[in-house]
């Protein structure tokens, strides 16, 4: 199809061109391509390739999946773990640096500082600590049972997942507002 058209166009162009009378040797194909090419060394080519790879679309993840207790609980397990351990690391490193920085992080000063907070701030602080702690602990037991090979049926996973959420809400709320 394309070659036919090019042939026709060539004929047409040849008929119309003023320089048609100029002799062209028979049987010799004169072909011109519109590709702009230039020499690239192997190293430069690699660089172009690396840059081009960065422009490839990133495969979609997380946002395209339906929120389900199976994978939501798993990601929250990691998020709460990072929160709790991060808190521990921050407290530990500050406690170590406290003498040098002149801070007072001994138990009596901490207790006195917290005692002076308004009730709303206390409740917020307790909730921030309690909910991640209970979720990570209860969900951790779920993960340990899976490590024993128990409770792998999809229905069981969903049931235990929502049970963990329910227990977290109950215990978290109790220790935030009552305990």
């Amino acid at each position: 199809m394309a070659s036919q058209r090019i042939f026709q166009l060539g004929l047409r162009r040849a008929a119309a061109a003023p320089g048609f009378t100029r002799f062209q040797p028979a049987g010799r194909m004169v072909q011109r391509r519109l590709a702009a090419t230039h020499n690239v060394s192997s190293a430069e080519g690699q660089e172009i390739l690396v840059k081009q790879r960065l422009q490839r679309p990133v495969s979609p993840h997380l946002t395209i999946y339906r929120p389900q207790i199976t994978w939501y609980a798993s990601s929250f397990n990691r998020i709460t773990g990072i929160l709790l351990s991060g808190g521990l690391y921050i407290f530990g490193l500050s406690y170590l640096a406290a003498p040098a920085l002149g801070w007072h992080l001994e138990t009596p000063s901490l207790v006195a500082a917290v005692a002076s907070w308004p009730v709303a701030v206390k409740i917020a602080a307790k909730a921030t600590a309690a909910f991640p702690f209970f979720f990570h602990s209860i969900n951790g037991i779920r993960h340990l049972t899976w490590d024993l090979g128990i409770g792998f049926k999809n229905k069981t996973v969903i049931q235990t997942g929502w049970t963990a959420v329910g227990l977290t809400v109950a215990l978290g709320a109790y220790y935030t507002f009552v305990g």
Partner: peptide, 30 residues
């Protein structure tokens, strides 16, 4: 490095202070 420092810090806290569980208990009651 952070983990080693944390271990050092908690050792210091356990030997010089009241301990993690007791701290949390007192903070919760504060």
């Amino acid at each position: 490095i952070g983990t080693v420092l944390l271990g050092l810090s908690l050792y210091s806290f356990e030997t010089n202070d009241v301990g993690i569980t007791e701290l949390v208990k007192r903070l919760w009651a504060a």
